[in-house]
Design a protein around this nucleic acid. Structure first.
Lengths: 331, 331
DNA sequence: TTGTAAGCGTTATCAT
DNA sequence: ATGATAACGCTTACAA
């Protein structure tokens, strides 16, 4: 049915070896022959089988993008699309195919990391959304397949990562609030199993403490809008003096603003709010949201670069991207 | 290095055939033997090679999701993430792997559809974002590989599609505006190479004409915010009497609202606006946007269902999902 | 410059 | 119930 090099070989009256040579641009072949082979391949509408090639070459030219908790709430949406785009674009540009797979903390216990890798003979994998104590982390460390984690600072023989300088980002945001005159700044953080949460907390603390302020108004949310609302309620209840909130995600910041509105407080007149991520929503809501920008697309492209680097024998170097504070109307 | 059935066979003192049998749950095998084989496989940490299996079985258990113009502007973002999620979730649930690939009208001329399919031996493909006269359309028709197109009403021996009842959606929206008392309703459509644009235009016309109104205030945009603004400017310039706009995307509707605001017109007091899609933004902007809901996630899951149906020998039936008019503050 | 033949990790056919 | 053996479509020594 499908045409193979065998068919071409027959048609061209040469061996399959010669066909293979012609197709792959080897030079120890008569230009005439190559031309004829290529010609016939074209006529026959030959398409090489990557599958067969993968089997014999023991590399698939495929990168796996494994995302944990992709659809859980709407949180991922805003962050992940760009990451996926970046990975896809760069992977394609470098000649790699992309396999997308999703998992969850639970799934991770059911189907081992290595199973995903071997099934498709992934050359490398990019892992996003894993929590600090998810099962895959150890498996990644044990594996020989190059892997770069997004936002989890693991390092190993075949494992590197890419992340933002979250500490700096948080520090910038909080410092700005302080400079704007705020003394009582609440921090609505993400959940505790996210590495970025730890880092952002450190940034918050650092900024507060270096200004001689107490850094104790912290709430742990879940990155989504509801938990932003909750954070405001919770923190304000105990500390009515809070005049600003730094939130570990834009979604939480939006929730915070909504809740504040509901309480009759004006943003930014009464209370200032800063988010994190700079998702599209940030400049569509009213008031527009000041936030810490994350170069999501670059998370994707650079993750691929690191992987491919490792594939070529380099030791994977961690990548730490720069945050950028974007000031809008909410401050 | 990697352990294969051969290794297991040796360890277990049986033939590879027997191992294969054990692994695949055949029943013409001694339960004892199976148990031992499975046991050893586990000890050795055996992971089957999907690649090898694909080669011999001539099916890869893989579905390709090919998206044209994925990152062009920010338009796709809002619509595509859910489609991707849906495809991914259902594909995984049914035991299929997902390969994500992107293309563009230009790319389509460079790398043939069949090349993508054969390279990975895709069992089926889902195609999104193609324009009405993109090269892939004909290729899909000629191909024997099951394909379902999203929002392009192609039908063929191995080709079906899934779409929304766009005509009805548009009709509902416009009819609502008419019932609200509007007589001069502008339509900011998507670009002409989108099938959905034709359909939505028909819906607009139908609603207007059945109310005895002129249906001639049409602008062709590009689905993005900028073209929404442009549409308002253009239409209003020539027809200051317009008191409502129906837009073929939420992004254009938001652009329209922004432009109207800029002109000093209040939404909805002076002018009503309805969008299309119900992206997340719709209920975050001010005023919140009335719109026609598209079940994006279902586009994904059902597309997979159709593909898998075809893989099992069914003739692919087109799927037409139901729109739903969501009324919010912009009307 | 070209061909022969082995092998990649499976499944499948046919014996036994 | 089990085992040889031939595929699957390709690459790659090694020979010629």
């Amino acid at each position: 049915m499908t045409v193979t090099i065998k068919d071409i070989a027959k048609q061209a009256g040469v061996s399959i070896t010669t066909v293979s040579r012609a197709m792959n641009g080897y030079r120890d072949i008569n230009p005439e022959t190559r031309k004829r082979v290529l010609q016939i391949a074209d006529e026959l509408n030959y398409r090489p089988s990557g599958i067969a090639r993968s089997l014999v070459m023991k590399q698939s030219k495929t990168i796996g993008l494994i995302i944990s908790e992709m659809t859980r709430s709407r949180t991922g949406h805003h962050f992940l699309f760009d990451v996926i785009s970046g990975v896809n674009d760069r992977a394609m540009a470098l000649g790699y195919d992309l396999i997308l797979a999703t998992t969850s903390p639970h799934e991770q216990q059911v189907v081992p990391y290595m199973e995903l890798c071997h099934r498709r003979q992934l050359d490398g994998v990019i892992l996003s959304g894993v929590r600090t104590k998810d099962p895959y982390l150890q498996e990644v460390l044990d594996s020989d397949i190059p892997c770069v984690l997004i936002d989890v600072p693991l390092l190993g023989k075949a494992c590197s990562h890419i992340t933002l300088d979250n500490r700096k980002g948080a520090h910038q945001a909080v410092k700005y609030l302080i400079r704007s005159g705020h003394r009582h700044i609440g921090f609505i953080n993400g959940h505790r199993e996210a590495f970025v949460s730890e880092e952002r907390l450190l940034g918050y603390r650092h900024a507060m403490e270096e200004a001689g302020l107490k850094a104790e108004w912290v709430f742990y949310g879940d990155f989504d809008e509801a938990s932003g609302r909750e954070g405001v309620r919770h923190l304000l209840e105990q500390n009515p003096e809070l005049s600003a909130f730094f939130c570990a995600s834009d979604l939480m910041a939006i929730g915070a603003m909504r809740e504040l509105e509901g309480m009759g407080k004006k943003v930014p007149q009464d209370v200032s709010v800063i988010g994190f991520d700079d998702i599209d929503l940030a400049h569509y809501v009213t008031p527009t949201l000041s936030t810490v920008y994350q170069p999501r697309y670059q998370f994707g492209t650079q993750a691929v670069d690191v992987i491919v680097g490792m594939l070529e024998g380099e030791q994977g170097k961690p990548v730490v991207l720069e945050p950028e504070l974007l000031l809008r109307e909410s401050t």
